[in-house]
Write a protein that binds this DNA or RNA. Structure first.
Lengths: 217, 217
DNA sequence: TAGTGATATGACCATAAAGTCACATTTATA
DNA sequence: TATAAATGTGACTTTATGGTCATATCACTA
């Protein structure tokens, strides 16, 4: 956790530092990201920075946790109405809302992706953190789905979770490739609505396969 | 490509350098991996190294390509007999042989994984390379499978490929977690046979889901 | 044996990073 | 206003890297 001094800072200054840190860890992995660059951009002295954060690790953990928190909050805030009728409707909604977050918060998304795949001295802590968010959420959905009889009872819940989570995590590669657009560009693209329709169509197809593959009929 | 000088080296010396380079790029990402360390371990002078390789990039490309080549060769060498009857049997075999490679060549596997996810100045070249191997292989299988009527004709071949490739790529996380064993440990584990059975069982379940989800019935 | 091209060497350079610290400045308190 | 506590500062230290180069050594040929 950052020092209290950091939280005593004027909101604007604290936010500036935070934003620049997010930018830095979105654009470069842990080792390549540079504190020197952050303080230069933020126009604060190195020494000041080290009054707020004990070291690079502390800043990194702070930033990554921030990113995860925001994603969780976003998903919570956008809970679907009406309540989904079954497991696959829930899944369908989760895909949609996840992509919304990725589009609205590309930098935070980058930070999270790097945290999941990259090297860092705090990798183990972050893996645990990752488990606790998206994966746990889907795991709960699966459990509920099985209890409700939406899923075939013979499937291993862990396997079902695995298949869905990995597909979900990697949609970020598939969608741009399929659409022939860069992820970052989708949000600012003139054909935004068209693209969103295409994305939703992909989700429909994907959920269809899952339903066929492990849904009760 | 390395300089001719490198290939003129005595086999033993060249192999030593190659092995240590593989080790280095397996244990650290592009930026963190250290030429200084490689030459120290190999007991050669820095200057000698730079007579073989123009720069760090060249060594890295050489090592990664080596890893890909070996994996392709391994899969080719282990083509199943008798010929698989349908798409899902082929898939079943591909999973099996892929894991065999991962277990027998953990370092090369690490190098490939890092190449696929990490940052490096040659990322684009490597992405293209990755496309050309595992993904292309599965894409071809899917195409053949659809032509043979093994897969439902309504499914998007790209989507089918995507689902299978991502699941396949991420099995390396699921399997150890499910077995409660570290990947690197499986090969040396006393319960090796038992573990292999468990792994094959996972594959059976997975292929089952795919077959149900996108197979013709 | 003399000479020539290929190969080996490691001190050295430029660069950039994380982190420190003695000191300056601001803010709060009495 | 005077004192103390909290903040701010940036030059500096340490450490490591990728890459260079003048020089030494080797292996082969004539």
């Amino acid at each position: 956790m950052p020092n209290q001094t950091f939280f005593n800072l004027p909101d604007k200054k604290r936010q500036k530092i935070t934003d620049l840190a997010i930018l830095e860890f979105a654009h470069a992995d842990y080792d390549t990201a540079s504190i020197s660059n952050i303080v230069k951009q933020a126009k604060i002295a190195k020494g000041s920075f080290y009054q707020y954060f004990a070291d690079k690790k502390e800043l990194y953990l702070y930033v990554v946790n921030l990113a995860y928190d925001q994603r969780i909050a976003f998903i919570r805030e956008n809970h679907p109405t009406p309540e989904p009728r079954d497991f696959f409707e829930s899944l369908r909604w989760l895909f949609h809302v996840s992509v919304q977050f990725n589009l609205q918060q590309p930098l935070l998304t980058q930070v999270i992706n790097r945290a999941a795949y990259g090297d860092s001295p705090v990798k183990k802590i972050l893996l645990a953190r990752a488990q606790a968010t998206a994966r746990q959420y889907i795991q709960d959905l699966v459990q509920k789905g099985m209890a409700q009889g939406d899923l075939i009872p013979t499937i291993d819940p862990d396997l079902a979770t695995f298949i869905i989570v990995t597909a979900s995590d990697n949609l970020k590669y598939y969608i741009p490739q399929k659409l022939g657009v860069e992820t970052q560009k989708i949000a600012e693209d003139a054909d935004f609505e068209l693209n969103m329709q295409a994305i939703d169509h992909i989700f429909d197809q994907l959920v269809q396969v899952f339903k066929r593959g492990m849904g009760q009929r």
